[in-house]
Amino acid sequence: MTYLSRIRINPLRAQSRTLLANPRAMHGAITGGITGTPEDERILWRLDADNPHRPHLYVLTRSKPDWTHLVEGAGWPDADGHHAAVRDYTPLLQQIATGREFAFRLTASPTQNTHAPNKPTPAQTARLATETPDKRPRGLRMGHRTAAAQLHWFLTRTEKWGFTIPDSRTDQPAPGLVPSTPHPVADKTPPWEPNPARDLRITERRRHSFTKGGKGPRITFHTASFEGCLRVTNPAAFTNSLLGGIGPSKAYGCGLLTLAPLPERKG
């Protein structure tokens, strides 16, 4: 069985400030609510801070969690209201069918593999130097940093994830504005438009940088939060994307795709 949880975070508490600033610390706090071992779980999580005064943490787990420690240390343990809602994920999975449309939200870490980074670190330079005519090291994983590249990364992979993004339902562009390429193709060279005519938008872009336990090499990655409408094309692949996550950096709050009913459209 699978469960989706939503936990309210109080950003004014000391523990909350640590968790909100460090994805590794948040991951540790989340695993503390799981009875099984990390090897038995595929934990996905995402922090939504649209309202900085009321951030919400979403967590997908295989076993039923207990978030008492998070509510007591980083929430409002004595206030009114539901501080940690835990729901069975099965009813949503049963709604997955070809052609079904949902509103969605996803925070992901768009990346590419390259053997020629623009500004390699000393460690990357040393790794690339091991290349020989008979042995080529695996490409370096580099984060996409621009909105255009992040959108292109997303749009060229949706079919693999089991869905597509419908065309935008907004009005036609004003005279003189040329619509963007409607169907980006993976691995094609630019140009591509930063705002494709799809029902999709980036709501937040961030750079994360931290160390493990305050020591050791620094972990740095870039994220983009996507929102819009999707249409299911392959229910099996789409279910795998929901349960297994999308893209890298899942331990640090990336990859959780959440769905909601589409709002009523006035016609």
Rank of each mutant, 00 (worst) to 15 (best):
F154Y: 09
D80E: 06
L44H: 11
A25M: 15
H222I: 06
Y58S: 06
A84Q: 01
D40I: 02
H208T: 04
E41S: 04
R17Y: 02
P117V: 06
T114W: 00
Q95M: 11
A174C: 00
P91M: 08
I96C: 04
F154E: 07
H69P: 15
T158C: 14
D48H: 10
M142P: 00
Q112A: 12
F154M: 06
L4P: 12
R218I: 15
G75F: 03
S16W: 02
Y252I: 03
P91E: 08
D171C: 08
R218E: 15
M26E: 09
R46E: 04
R145N: 05
L256H: 06
L200R: 01
R62K: 15
G143F: 09
R138I: 10
Q95E: 12
G176I: 00
G214S: 00
G28A: 07
A260H: 15
T98Q: 12
N195V: 08
R207H: 11
F221K: 08
A236V: 15
E72R: 13
L4D: 11
G73T: 15
R136T: 13
G81E: 05
P235H: 14
T98L: 12
L92S: 00
G75D: 02
N234M: 01
A236W: 05
P248V: 07
L57P: 01
T220R: 14
L242A: 08
R218N: 09
F163D: 15
R42H: 12
G216D: 02
R17K: 11
F163E: 15
L60I: 03
R231T: 13
D48F: 04
A21C: 07
G216M: 01
S209R: 09
N22Q: 07
P120E: 09
P194V: 08
